[in-house]
Design a protein around this nucleic acid. Structure first.
Lengths: 152, 152
DNA sequence: AAATTATAGTAAGTATACTGATTATCGGTA
DNA sequence: TACCGATAATCAGTATACTTACTATAATTT
């Protein structure tokens, strides 16, 4: 039987675990309190003001039901607003507030530092190889996820 | 700013998400109901009968508090027993039951198939490169996680 | 236009994961 | 031996993630 420590599933979880820990540490050290999901959602809404929750979920590859809670907490923190869409009364229109924009700008160095630290053990060349292969594997498996990425 | 889709943190989460979905799909198709954590914990206890929860957590890189719940559910399903240690009355001694051993044996093909599917998009050579780099990155960041791997 | 189907958001329930605190116990030391 | 710092397990609380189901509304078909 294959050793647990060589299994893609085990390694995937551990890498993600480490990535989240680094993100939290860097962001907290900079004085902020955003989680990785909250950051991704907020950044996406900033790029696409007025986006609805389902589209947002597809663009950052999260489940609809998870996004409900994430948006809830972001609204509670005053970083974005959620209003009924005039065009589609089922949908909610999301907008980043001034406070949200300020946080996004201020938090960016910490987020970038975190991304670098996650691959600190690899040489620059290895980083390129690794990310390319990771993306290739993800693309092949995208449809198998409950929350596939939907862009374009 | 770096594109979200090129960020290690985002890619790490997506790969893990896909890996978990594949695991569930394969295991469910084979007629079982074990989660990835539950499988890892059960398999480790099978290899080290009598292990305590803290050591188990360290060997599969999970948080102590998470393992409490995982062991709870495994015990509830009748796959392992949890008894007070005669040597250390703080610790619980874990043992796989006969039912647990049967499940472990029966589930193995599904688990192996899942591991293969996770990297279906890569050539055999790329799989080797990818896993080596993934392990290298994890080793470098291991200490930064709340639940670092503790072996040996 | 009426009926059907699909979609947006939410809610309930379960299972990770994490932080921080508590309890019981152990091991070493004053 | 009495204390004291460390450790095993648990608990409370928060935040992902997932499944399933429900409500309201939109889009499509008949």
């Amino acid at each position: 039987m294959t050793d647990l420590y060589d299994r893609p599933g085990h390694l995937a979880r551990r890498f993600q675990q480490i990535a989240v820990a680094i993100f939290h540490a860097e962001v907290a050290a900079a004085g902020f309190d955003l989680t990785p999901v909250q950051y991704a959602a907020l950044a996406e809404v900033a790029v696409r003001p007025g986006i609805d929750q389902a589209t947002l979920a597809g663009r950052i590859a999260y489940d609809r039901t998870t996004i409900t809670g994430v948006v809830d907490r972001l609204a509670q923190k005053g970083f974005l607003t959620r209003d009924l869409s005039p065009r589609d009364r089922r949908a909610r229109v999301l907008m980043v507030t001034k406070a949200g924009e300020e946080v996004l700008a201020a938090i960016e160095p910490a987020v970038d530092a975190a991304q670098r630290k996650m691959l600190d053990g690899l040489t620059p060349e290895e980083v390129g190889t690794f990310l390319a292969l990771l993306k290739k594997a993800i693309n092949a498996g995208n449809a198998l996820s409950r929350a596939p990425l939907k862009v374009g």
